[in-house]
Amino acid sequence: MTGTPGVLVHADGVLLARAAAARFLTRVVDAQAARGMAHVVLTGGRNGNALLRELAASPARDVVDWAHVHVWWGDERFLPSGHPERNETQARAELLDGLALNPEFVHPMPAADGPDGNDPEAAAGRYADELAVAARPETPAERGGVDVPSFDIAMFGVGPDCHVASLFPELPAVHETELTVVAVRGAPKPPPTRITLTFPAIRTAKDVWLLAAGDDKASAVRLGLGGGGPVQVPAAGAYGRRNTLWLLDRSAAAQLPPGLDRFASP
Rank of each mutant, 00 (worst) to 15 (best):
P188F: 10
G157I: 09
F156M: 14
G117K: 04
L247Q: 14
P140D: 14
E170L: 01
V64H: 12
V231L: 01
A21P: 06
Y127M: 06
W246Y: 13
P120T: 09
R203H: 09
C162E: 13
V29D: 01
D116L: 05
P169F: 02
I202N: 15
R250C: 08
F151R: 07
D129V: 14
D147E: 14
V133S: 09
D152R: 00
P172L: 03
V69K: 01
D12V: 02
L101T: 05
L55D: 12
N243S: 15
P115E: 09
G45K: 00
H39D: 14
E130V: 13
T193P: 05
R53S: 12
E121P: 02
L247H: 12
P188R: 07
G259K: 13
S166K: 02
L52A: 03
F151H: 14
G6S: 15
P137I: 08
G227D: 06
A128E: 15
A112Y: 03
V40C: 07
R203V: 08
V40K: 05
R27H: 02
T198C: 09
E130L: 14
G229C: 10
V41L: 04
R203K: 11
A31I: 08
P188D: 08
P160I: 04
M37S: 07
P192F: 02
A31D: 09
G6L: 14
R194T: 04
D261Q: 15
P160T: 09
V69N: 06
D161F: 02
E176S: 00
A264V: 15
A57D: 10
G48H: 09
R23S: 13
V231T: 10
D75W: 02
L223M: 11
R241H: 12
L51P: 01
A205C: 14
E88G: 02
H70I: 01
L211E: 05
L210D: 10
R262H: 13
N102H: 13
T2H: 03
E104I: 00
F78I: 12
P103E: 05
Y239H: 12
A254W: 01
V182M: 07
V71K: 05
R86T: 06
S251G: 12
A201C: 14
R250W: 02
R143L: 04
P5T: 08
V233I: 13
G45H: 01
G240D: 10
W73G: 03
Y239D: 01
A173L: 09
L211H: 10
L79P: 00
Q32E: 07
D12R: 01
A141N: 05
T89S: 10
R262F: 13
V63L: 12
P172E: 09
A134L: 15
A252T: 11
W72S: 04
D113P: 11
F168N: 12
N87S: 07
F151S: 13
V208W: 06
A220V: 00
R86S: 07
P115L: 07
N102F: 07
P149M: 10
H10E: 13
T198E: 10
T2Y: 01
T43H: 00
A132I: 09
L248N: 07
V164C: 01
R92Q: 05
